[in-house]
Each structure stands twice: as C-alpha cells, then as structure tokens.
C-alpha cells in the first residue's frame, strides 16, 4: 500500500532538526559584542569619518561640527542608533538571551546565580526605559534622513555623477536601515496598530489600516532587517575607514 506520508520523511527530518540552543546566543555574543567593541574603538580612536564625498554612518550628521567640536565627533551621533537598537523589541530578545541568559534558550534553565536575584523583567531601570522606544524611533528617523542625504552625495563626485564601490555600499546601507526603521514594532503601533476599528469612520479600510497591513508584512522580517542593517553599518564604516587609512583606493565603476 502506498505510504505518501512517508515519502517526505527524509526532507522533513532535515527541516525538523534544530540547532543546539547555544548557537543563537553564541552568535549574538560574537556579532553584537564584536560590533559594540568595534563601535567603541571607532568612536574613541577617530575624529573624522569623511573620505571625499563619502561619509561614514558613524559620523553623520556632523553634529559635533555644528557646535565647533573636533574631538570624539562620532559620540554626538552614535547614541541615537545605540538607544534605538538597545530598546528595539528584536534586540531585546537577542541580548536577554545572549548576554543575560534570561533565558539562553527556550525551556533551558537559567543559571543558578539568577535564583538569588529577584527578576523584575522590564519593570525597573534601565529596562523600563525600553517603553520609550518610540522616542528613539523619532530620533532614528532624523538620522536616517541625513544618511539618505549622504547616499545621494556618495554618487556625486568632483566631475559629476558617478558610481564607486563606496556609493553602492552606502546605498545598500541606507536601504537596509530604512527597512529596519520602518519595520519597527513601535512604528507599526503608531501607524495604525493602536486602533481597534479600522472601518468605523466610513465602513471602508482606513489609510491607517492599509499602512498597518504593509508595515506588518515588513515587521515579520524585523530581525533580518536588524542584523542586515547592523552589518551594513559596520561594512560601510570599515570601508570608509580603510579608504581614509589609504589601505586601498575606491574602485570607480563608472
């Protein structure tokens, strides 16, 4: 007798295989921890992030320059993306699992040291400030506008329009950061999620509903946007840093 259910078993077994629980927190520790260390080095060791028409995302907008400050110039900008990512609902999952083991994995016992400490979740400082994520989002949108300005500028060379490898990297970075910013859970709530009734005005789907639906689709991939944009910021800054250091010159595509 035919056994159609069995035909797919081999493939399904592969799909069912889970990685060990520690893989995800280990990745978070390495990737997020590595980025934070890199960011601290970038902020403390450099005061310039501009190479011709390219501006590093760590140094844009040039807030320090507006006030005539020439030291630790990145510091006046990086706090915005830092609080935006720190209070992000996706990153909360990652750092609570990776750095705090609250918990490290699903149904994985927390370390014995947690038993002696009262768990308060996001009720106490500093984690209760995560409730203000929307304000971090407002600031992140302002920074994003400047990053798009920098992206346009990255295509304008001394002799007019052109495309360099740096232009492409900054464009990809701006696109990924836009995806990350506008797939945000707080934005999803703001744009329409806080409404209970989407048709109560005239019986038809409201504009808020249409936007909420769209943002809900992007929101499903918020974690992917979060990682991709983190790596793109890293890559864009490192690329410009290497150009400034003279390690190589920017290849012009045309």
């Amino acid at each position: 007798m035919a056994q159609p259910v069995q035909a797919a078993v081999e493939g399904r077994k592969q799909a069912e295989k889970h990685l060990p629980y520690w893989v995800e927190p280990a990745f978070t520790i390495v990737a997020l921890g590595g980025f934070v260390i890199y960011a601290i080095w970038e902020v403390l060791a450099h005061n310039n992030g501009t190479y011709h028409n390219y501006v590093s995302p760590f140094f844009s907008p040039g807030v320090a320059g507006w006030f005539g400050i020439h030291v630790l110039t990145a510091l006046y900008v990086v706090w915005v993306p830092f609080i935006f990512r720190f209070s992000c609902y996706y990153y909360r999952k990652e750092y609570f699992r990776g750095f705090f083991f609250h918990p490290a994995g699903c149904a994985v016992s927390e370390p014995a040291s947690h038993k002696n400490k009262r768990y308060t979740g996001e009720r106490r400082f500093p984690f209760n400030l995560n409730n203000l994520h929307r304000y971090a989002w407002y600031l992140a949108v302002i920074v994003l506008i400047f990053l798009w300005k920098d992206t346009v500028q990255a295509f304008i060379f001394k002799n007019g329009f052109g495309v360099g490898l740096g232009s492409i990297i900054l464009l990809i970075n701006a696109v990924l950061l836009t995806g990350y910013t506008f797939s945000c859970h707080a934005f999803r709530n703001m744009i329409g999620g806080r409404k209970d009734c989407f048709s109560c005005a005239n019986g038809k789907p409201s504009t808020g509903y249409k936007w909420w639906r769209r943002v809900s689709v992007w929101n499903q991939f918020h974690g992917a946007w979060a990682w991709a944009s983190l790596f793109s910021v890293w890559a864009a800054d490192l690329y410009i840093r290497l150009l400034i250091s003279g390690v190589f010159s920017d290849p012009r595509l045309f």
Binding site: K93, P103, C106, R123, N131
Partner: peptide, 15 residues
Amino acid sequence: AGLNMCNVTKCCTEV
C-alpha cells in the same frame, strides 16, 4: 497582569 515582566524573548511564539 504584569505585562512588563515579559522581556520579549519569544519562546512562547516558538512553542
């Protein structure tokens, strides 16, 4: 209800 005791680690969704 203690909503802010949740630190959104998403295990509930996973299972």
